[in-house]
Amino acid sequence: MAFEVHVVTPEREVWAGVAETVIARGVDGEVGILTGHAPMMVQLAIGPLRIDREGDGELAAVVDGGFMHVTSSGGEDGQPATRVDVLAAQAELAGDIDVEAARVRSAELEQALQSHDTHLAEAEVASIKAELEKALARISLAG
């Protein structure tokens, strides 16, 4: 039994299709969705999103946080129709990731963290760390 999946960012719809399983990394741990799942809202961490497509292999993407919203509305044949929406500020399919750029970026960010450790404000450190995490997530998925 398959269900509809949409991966959207504010700038565009990154992917839409039909899947059997969706596995995402929530802030409190991994979450897997199968058809007929209860309605749910998950806050996502920066990490991989795996979509198992019906007979079409697995599709991997990286999402920079956001939310996963699982809904089930009354389907036509009496079966509830499950639908998963992944809402992320940024999302990239594994095939679209520029690994080299991510490597360069992670090296830069690590450098920034080490060399300026003392005079950076706490908020700045946090934002650099988040950026670094995004770059590393891309490398680990595609590299």
Binding site: H6, T9, E11, R12, E13, P39, H69, T71, D85
Partner: peptide
Amino acid sequence: RVEASRPYAIQLTDAMED
């Protein structure tokens, strides 16, 4: 670009309503 931004806005509002 306006069109492309719509799905996200709609889904986000939907999620919030839920």
